[in-house]
Measured scan of single mutants.
Amino acid sequence: PDLGLTQLFADPNLIENLKKNPKTSEMMKDPQLVAKLIGYKQNPQAIGQDLFTDPRLMTIMATLMGVDL
C-alpha cells in the first residue's frame, strides 16, 4: 500500500502550492528536489527510500498533510 501518498502527490498544483508555502518555498528553488517531487506523481513508492536520505521530504510531507512540525 502507498499509505495515501498517491493522493498527496497527485495534486496538479503540488509544486506551485509548495512554492507559495513559507515552510517549503526555499526548498522549491532546488531543481533536483522539484524533479523528485514530479517523479513521485508517477511512482509514489519511490519516496519511501528518499525519506531516509533527504530530510526536506519529511517537511514537505508534513506540509502536504497539514501537520505543523
Rank of each mutant, 00 (worst) to 15 (best):
P1E: 11
P1D: 10
P1C: 10
L3S: 13
L3C: 12
L3R: 09
L3T: 11
G4K: 15
T6A: 15
Q7H: 14
Q7A: 14
Q7C: 09
L8N: 03
L8K: 06
L8D: 02
L8H: 06
F9E: 01
F9G: 02
A10S: 14
A10E: 11
A10H: 09
D11E: 08
D11H: 04
P12K: 06
N13M: 10
L14S: 03
I15L: 09
I15F: 06
E16N: 10
E16F: 06
L18V: 02
L18N: 00
K19N: 05
K19M: 13
K19D: 02
K20D: 07
K23G: 06
K23A: 13
T24A: 02
S25L: 07
S25W: 03
E26K: 07
M28D: 00
M28G: 01
M28A: 02
K29G: 06
K29D: 09
D30Q: 02
D30F: 01
D30V: 01
P31T: 10
P31E: 10
Q32D: 13
Q32P: 03
Q32H: 13
Q32W: 13
L33H: 00
L33C: 02
L33I: 05
V34N: 03
V34K: 03
V34S: 03
V34H: 03
A35F: 04
A35S: 10
A35V: 07
A35L: 10
A35R: 10
K36G: 02
K36F: 06
L37T: 00
I38Y: 06
I38S: 07
I38G: 06
G39T: 10
G39S: 14
Y40W: 08
K41P: 06
K41N: 13
Q42Y: 11
Q42N: 15
Q42T: 15
N43W: 06
N43Y: 09
Q45T: 13
Q45F: 07
A46Y: 09
A46M: 12
I47E: 03
I47W: 12
I47M: 08
Q49I: 13
Q49G: 10
D50N: 05
D50P: 03
D50Q: 04
F52T: 08
F52R: 12
T53F: 12
T53E: 12
T53C: 07
D54N: 02
D54F: 01
D54W: 02
D54E: 05
D54R: 00
P55D: 09
P55N: 09
P55R: 08
L57T: 02
L57S: 02
M58I: 15
T59M: 11
T59L: 15
T59W: 12
T59I: 12
M61R: 03
A62F: 12
A62I: 12
L64Q: 03
L64T: 02
L64A: 05
L64N: 01
M65W: 07
G66S: 08
V67G: 14
V67S: 13
D68P: 01
L69Y: 03
L69K: 10
L69N: 13
